[in-house]
Amino acid sequence: MATPYGGTPGTADAGELTPAATRSVHLWRHWRRYPVKVITGCGLLAFFVLLAIIGPFVAPYDPSAIGPDVLAAPSAAHLLGTTNTGQDVLSQLLVGARVTLLVGFGAAAVATAVSVIVGISAGYYAGVGGELLSMLTNIFLIIPLLPLLVVLTAFLPGAGSLIVAVVISATAWAWGARVLRAQTLALRKADFVQAARAAGERGWRIILFEILPNELAIVFSSFLFTVITAILTDAGLIFLGLGDTSQWSWGAILFWAQNNEALGTGAWWWFVPPGLCIALTGTALALINFGVDELINPSLRTAGLGRKASRAMTTEQGLTPVRRAESAELTAARGTGR
């Protein structure tokens, strides 16, 4: 006997049609439904990335070109003023965006890759191997980052941004690895991992294809935080004079500003813009991070409702709201039902 939903009773699940979940294609269409944080953060980050891409092409002056207007306040000719040698701050900012972001994202990418390999393996392999990896992670966690970097850059030949990026990634992976190890320890006991083992899957396949896809949210979040760390560390190193001050980056601007008493002479247009850019980039990444948390864990939002609707629903002291909407049809139907 066929049912209107297809299938016949006797086969499993006759009459069953679970609606398909939203595929990834639809994710982009509903961007307005995303939390405010994600939209703001993405917008801000997109702005800076755009700056990094087109910066050198739209910079009005050569950032290193010395000019006659020295320590000039922002004006029509120099939108962000000039340095003590007449260099245009805006141009420096635009050109420097590229290096700063490249080093930041590049170092973070490498660090994240290392943290994934070490962290998940440390969590999955229970025996000596796992313990060793865990110990390695802990060692790198304890070592203070900045002093280590100071020592390394002092000894390494040259101090190009590539070296700095490598050094940063060599030290920033440990935190992410620890988090991933903890998560993997929990996931390892999950039934679907046991089922993969029972099916005969090899260890590395389980790590890459069973465990890692379930930890992508953490990996992504860890990556974003590592970008912030990398940018700040890079800027910090350059500011201290240990990085590459020959290339223009936001840190370099700060270095020169500091060296030439910009704070003392009140040339706020020199050090505020690069500092603000670094801070805003960090903020953008943090906003995306928190926003993505809400996206992935809908219970952090108010159960999928819009902000206005959820406020309307909460009543006194958390009692279940009562909203009787008795329509005429309903009363009539109940009348005949008796």
């Binding site: 108010t302 159960a303 999928g304 409702l305 959820s310 629903m313 909460t314 009543t315 958390g318 009692l319 279940t320 709201p321 009562v322 909203r323 009787r324 909407a325 008795e326 309903l330």
Partner: peptide, 17 residues
């Protein structure tokens, strides 16, 4: 059971009865 004792949390709503 939870609705009858008003223990149900939003978005649960009693709409009649």
């Amino acid at each position: 059971a939870y609705g009858a004792t008003r223990l149900l949390r939003p978005p649960g709503t009693i709409t009649g009865g």
